[in-house]
Nucleic acid binder design. Sequence first.
RNA 1: GUGGCCGUAGCUCAAGGGCAGAGCACCAGACUGUGGCUCUGGGGGUUGGGGGUUCAAAUCCCCUCGGCCACCCCA
Length: 421
Amino acid sequence: MEIRAPRGMPDILPAETPRWQTVEATLREVARRHGYGEIRTPVAEHTEVFQRGVGAATDIVEKEMYTFTDRGGRSLTLRAEGTAPVMRAFLEHNLGAQGLPARVYYVCPIFRYDRPQAGRYRQHTQFGAEVIGSPDPAADAEVLGLAVRAVEALGLAHPDVHLSSVGDATCRPRYLEALRAYYRPRLGDVCDDCRRRFETAPLRLLDCKRAPDREIARGAPRILDYLCGACGAHLAGVRAHLDAMGIRYTIDPMIVRGLDYYTRTAWEALSGRLGAQNAVFGGGRYDRLAEQLGGPPTPGVGFGMGLERLLLVLQQEGVAGAGASSPELFIATAGTEPSRALALADRLRRDGLSVTVDVMARGLRAQMKQADRLGAAFVLLLGEDELRRGVAVLREMATGQQEDVALARLGEAVASRVRAR
RNA sequence: GUGGCCGUAGCUCAAGGGCAGAGCACCAGACUGUGGCUCUGGGGGUUGGGGGUUCAAAUCCCCUCGGCCACCCCA
């Protein structure tokens, strides 16, 4: 075969989809309990939404977007991130008019042209939630709580949440100046990447992975020491609310968000089960995003959670997932018109039974083998001999016991036997 | 975008210049109308793709595509 799925965009096959469905259903239920409504934005946006929302200088915009020109000459981009499109929709439809805050969640594919590796794909799926319209720390705590409880609802332990603040327009510039002042005399000692970061993304100096650079980073000024009064109070408020809810976190001034729109609260949940790509969810506050998109000042806070990574962790933690679904009944034929089996199956399905029929015109032995492989609980044999006598044979696969059931009362007889199991 | 390891049947893997194989899976038969166990037989391959070296390439060389892992970055 030369035709393959695009790189970094794996198929999810029927053996896997039950696990996905379980995870998605659980996440939706947690969102529902928190009073969040689902929003579905298109898979593509005008490229501008990401350039202005996420920030033109970010890695996502500079080198990871799937951008194309449509037949009308418009530049569109596959959804590269979850929050900016939600804010765009909020502004476009003036959702704030229905009362603030708006609470929304989404489960949708995200596209980034990255080199695939463990836990990283070019198409991945994010569950995310946003509270738009509230500047209050209670909103931060609520939506972070949603993320934590969602992870727990899947059967995992309370996640390892790292919490910090990236400040705002008042205090962040002051901090960046202090950070640069600290690094400027040390530029000869750090790696090439860090020298580049010094120019383009100084906050990222803090999470370099090289051991000697980490040592230097440890001595750097802490943003938490530079927060302005309002930002400091906001973080204290978030912490108080989280403590009250029993949401655990560690204050980690080294965490950094990769997108330009973040202000104040920032967090990341890490797993030791994921290799290098260890963030299960990340998020924070984005009070400047609406303005960057050309809307009125509108505060917001939210997170994105990677479903592929969640599934990986679930698998490694051995949390049982639903298996592939088996039919309750397999209808086999022996010398019988296939249409009799199809018609019977059609009737039983309307009664709610899950029924599979042989459509390979195979011998009875092969049909039994197939029924066994599918995990069918019962096999109904429509044989010509039995049909003459007005009956069919119902066999319970686990025990091998079988009995004749009257054709006239087939539906209820089969249904009651299957349900009695 | 950078680096390392790896691509042989549906799956797991042999064959390291000389006829492409095994186990499992699949299909059929033994069991003429009954799954699991056993036995017998069968179908399956441009050895990821392209080029080169050679009398001869799965095997050696180059390019390319893909997978895994790490960097960068992120969920």
